[in-house]
Computed example of a mutant assay.
Amino acid sequence: MKTRLIDREVVSYFSKVKLLYESCEKSRDGTKEYHNAVFVGYDENGVPCHAHKRGLYTEGTGFKGNVDSCDPAYSFHHIGTDNRLYVFEAPIDLLSYITLHPKDWQNHSYVALCGVSEYAMLKMLELHPNLNHVVLCLDHDEAGIEASEKYHDLLTEKGVSCDRELSIHKDWNEDIKANHGLPAIPAEEHPQHLIRDEICRELTETAMTVKSNYSANTLSALLVKARSYLHWGQFSEADECLREMCRLSVAAAAREYRQMDHSRDIAAVQERLRDGFKTYENRGHLKTRLDLLESDIMSLRGFERVVTASEKEKLAECYERIAANGLKGTILLEQQRQKQEQRQSLAITMA
């Protein structure tokens, strides 16, 4: 079995309560035996409804996956006595986390999604109303980050308190390996977060040099230029147009808040822009994002008159939406540019 370094007492506990066992299965031709760790999930009546298999192997990549016809709402889990539910992608991550955080672990509740579907997490909250604080412990990679952001918003909308814990390496089992001096797969930051942070740093550095013309006509002209540049494949020029829209819109929102004696200054607007960005909301096409920008800019024209205090706040929020969609568009454009460079580099390599 590949070294997992899971605490033996933890494995023993889950084995005793029949949530974990080892299977031995023959190959179709009967010449080989396959040993798997099987993680079982029971429903509220104690009926097994889910099984996740993980191959026990000595080298290479082993089998892992859910048994056919499993109910995803009842995957591998443990229910404790307090109000905290810890959520993981895989059972091995769950056991690894407990190994790393053994103090009073049985008091808490844990669920492995056996993927990145939210069904099991929501079922646990439905069946156990005392669970009102969720800690998301998904993988430290692109898929895990997107799922964590999505679930955080989903739980917040339901009024459930939610935190997030990140492993130092790719997942909690990799952290255990690193603690024992073994090679560990490193964490993978989300590429859109890296681009977001670079853009937001630039916005902070140039905030005081932004022009004073924040009109709908100015923003509309920049959008027209960006579309034209994209049509001709001039990505750098299009990128600068979108960044300028972000700068102008952030400054405009801060100005409107300032005129209302609102405590939200330009630094606060910039922070809201950065923290409000969610990767799972930015999967679409760049054209769709530009269309949303156009719609937001059109909304500005409804404020081209003397406005009331309440309307000023709506105007500021409209500028913030433009900045948010401009940021998302810039990120999509940068990813598109990076992919084009990778294709060109590959073509040169293969030539």
Rank of each mutant, 00 (worst) to 15 (best):
R4L: 04
I6Y: 10
R8W: 02
V10P: 02
S12A: 14
K18P: 01
L19M: 09
Y21N: 08
Y21L: 06
S23I: 07
C24M: 05
S27D: 06
D29N: 14
D29M: 01
T31Q: 03
E33Y: 09
A37Q: 12
V38C: 07
F39E: 00
G46W: 05
H50I: 03
Y57N: 07
E59R: 15
T61N: 10
N66T: 15
F76H: 08
D82S: 13
N83Q: 11
L85W: 14
A90K: 05
P91Q: 08
I92G: 06
D93V: 10
D93G: 08
Y97L: 01
T99K: 03
L100C: 04
P102S: 01
D104C: 04
W105T: 06
Y110K: 12
L113A: 13
L113M: 14
G115E: 00
V116P: 00
E118P: 02
A120D: 02
K123C: 05
K123V: 02
M124V: 14
L127E: 11
L127N: 10
L127P: 00
H133A: 00
H133V: 03
H133E: 06
L136A: 14
L138R: 07
G144L: 00
I145C: 01
E146Q: 14
Y151H: 12
D153S: 09
L154D: 04
L155I: 02
T156W: 05
C162G: 05
S167Y: 03
D171S: 04
I176D: 05
A178G: 07
H180A: 14
H180F: 14
H190C: 04
H190N: 11
C200N: 11
L203P: 03
A207S: 13
V210W: 10
K211C: 01
K211R: 14
K211Y: 07
S212M: 02
N213K: 02
A221I: 08
L222W: 15
L223P: 04
L223V: 11
V224G: 10
H231T: 13
G233C: 03
Q234A: 10
R243S: 02
M245V: 15
V250F: 01
A251T: 09
A254R: 14
E256M: 10
Y257K: 05
R258D: 13
M260C: 08
M260Y: 03
D261A: 10
H262Y: 05
R272F: 06
F277S: 02
Y280K: 03
E281H: 15
E281P: 00
K287V: 13
T288Y: 12
I297K: 07
V306E: 07
V307N: 01
A309G: 03
S310I: 00
K312P: 00
R321L: 01
G326P: 01
T330F: 00
Q335T: 06
R337E: 07
Q340D: 04
E341I: 12
Q342E: 15
R343F: 08
Q344I: 13
I348E: 04
